[in-house]
Write a protein that binds this DNA or RNA. Structure first.
Lengths: 347, 347
DNA sequence: CTAGCCATATGGAACGTTCCAATTGACTAT
DNA sequence: ATAGTCAATTGGAACGTTCCATATGGCTAG
């Protein structure tokens, strides 16, 4: 038993040890592990018993080497702290597991260089596919990676011919928000946008489109902010100082909405009494007491599942051409929206 | 070039391809990759150039097989969504990377069975060490795992002789909270606890100890809640309905504090005017506008770093006996605490 | 009694590295 | 000239699996 006592951890038993003890060949043991049905009852029992007694555990490293396949899907999260990514990662792990794969997560630390390093590690580890959540890298660089393995870009849109993508229809989300506000009686709806940051342009387009569709083109008003709390706060300050108050504000995401909320609060105005506020992303914090932010939700777990399926289509079904999936978002109504005060209901 | 066109992805070049092209032996190539200094300048350049031209990337799977070491540390997060774990994971990835290791994250989905499965996968993958963040499993089961590799338990205390642990001094944190409240003039401080849930007993002990130390033993009051928002809300309701209001409440964690906050709000009482409130954990949400929760912070990144070091001590320095690290927490003062109203300042 | 078949089981090569003992050859000291 | 030294390099044996072509042996049909 302790025949190698000088080793800190006992040498793990191999398939050969099991074969010896069971009195069969290593090939048979291997077969029992992979396709138990193809083996006679007696052998199967002998092997299984021996494996049990020795505490044998297949060595995935050796298996991967000969199979040239690790059954691992690499996932690079640009930011571990983003709760949106955490949800998506859950969906990924789940879907991967059900198809016999494992997910290996790694953080990109919001830094393209560290992200690049994380990818390099994944490639050395020979993961079978790569899912990038909110990557900070340039698409051309990602396309180079896609020469070695299937890559899916999640949460970013692309028309690439080699990397797949799955994203949310940001335009539709913004439209839904405007539609809802209009249904509540709003017409003076201002949009804080985040410039050309990922996702923002499409949200802006949806906003403008919906405003025009409702005949409120003249009320379109865009204020530059950012995807951050302070970006939202500054933009809101600009709006308040302009003196021309809208009855509703559509923020580019929940963080910005939070900043706007703070600004409105400290100006002594009420939400939604004076101004209705809508965020985007439906982060967990949007549901917190005292916050209760109306926002646009994204089917996160579905996104994860879809990303895995895209990888597996290339791996197991030999798909060659890129696919780009777009899933629709949904509106989540909470406490920061309501009808505008009567005197401003227009008409 | 496309000599294997039928393959979806080009066969990756191996060390042999590089050796051929550089006109040297495979052993030399291997040496260049590992210890470039031991090779003549000419050979080094030839090999590096050849590798570059072929796009060679070392195969970590093959290397791991022969070295019987993967240079990967497995990390099981009981819950990906817990922002506390995300911070710690950051610290782990960072520290591991600096020591030449990679971290492989996996979620336990808050379910002991799935956690068990995640461990099994890690073991098959032959990770070199395992860090468990907030594990839901029994310590005896984890100790069995520790027979195969070094295991560090993080965020849970244990006296185990085989698994290491690193945790926060929960008792000291609760003491610090009480000390601060007393310094503000409070004496009627009530503690909502979470029964025997991980961490709660120590926090309660710290509370009681500090209360006695200040001579407020008679004001010790414990109300059973839980580590959840609803748990905090219910406990707070109990307190309010008792009619005997404390001037300050120490919640078992931030979520519970949030629930308590909601209850106090809807009772029409003010924070901190009527009741000061202290949480525990310093989650990101504690810093949000409108929330501004005073709470006990934990040095998360340090925790991660320490956990990695514990693993590496066993791996690289042959430590045999278990170590249990305890790091001190720190108080973060925000808006939910202040002096009690004058009429209740006691004396 | 022989041929053929089928289910079951086997040995050896391969996967892409690292490790180690052994080889080479230039140079130095005698 | 000869032996010794040293740096640089090499070939072959591992590592623990899977895969594949082949062997074994009992059974059935002629």
């Amino acid at each position: 038993m302790l025949y190698r006592e000088w080793e800190k951890f006992l040498k793990q038993p191999t398939i050969l040890d099991v074969a010896d003890r069971a009195g069969v060949s290593k090939s048979l043991v291997s077969l029992v592990m992979r396709e138990p049905d193809r083996v006679s009852d007696a052998s199967r029992k002998a092997v299984l018993d021996a494996a049990q007694e020795l505490g044998y555990r297949p060595n995935a490293v050796a298996r991967s080497l000969v199979q040239r396949r690790t059954n691992v899907i690499g996932v690079i999260l640009s930011d571990l702290h983003n709760p949106f990514f955490a949800d998506v990662a859950d969906g990924i792990e789940d879907a991967a597991f059900q198809r016999g794969y494992r997910a290996m997560l790694s953080s990109g630390f919001l830094d393209p260089n560290r992200e690049r390093g994380a990818i390099e590690t994944m490639l050395e580890l020979r993961v079978d596919g790569l899912i990038m959540l909110g990557s900070m890298m340039k698409v051309v660089d990602i396309e180079k990676v896609a020469a070695s393995l299937p890559v899916t870009l999640l949460g970013r849109h692309t028309r690439s011919k080699v990397v797949d993508s799955v994203g949310v229809d940001d335009s539709a989300g913004a439209e839904a928000a405007v539609d809802y506000l209009v249904s509540q009686g709003h017409s003076k709806i201002t949009h804080i946008h985040a410039g050309s940051a990922a996702g923002s342009p499409r949200r802006r387009i949806g906003y403008e489109k919906a405003m025009r569709r409702h005949g409120f083109g003249k009320h379109i008003r865009l204020v530059k902010g950012a995807f951050t709390e302070s970006g939202g706060a500054k933009a809101m300050t600009t709006i308040l100082e302009s003196g021309d108050l809208p009855t509703a504000v559509l923020a580019p995401n929940d963080f910005a909405a939070l900043g706007a909320m703070e600004t409105i609060d400290s100006a002594g105005l009420s939400i939604p009494g004076d101004i209705s506020l809508v965020g985007y992303d439906n982060l967990a914090l949007a549901a917190l007491p005292r916050i209760g932010l109306t926002t646009i939700g994204q089917p996160r777990v579905d996104l994860g599942r879809d990303a895995v399926h895209l990888i597996l289509e290339r791996l197991d079904e030999n798909r060659e051409s890129a696919r780009h999936l777009v899933v629709p978002p949904n509106l989540v109504v909470r406490a920061t929206t309501g009808p505008p005060r009567v005197h401003s209901t227009g008409l």
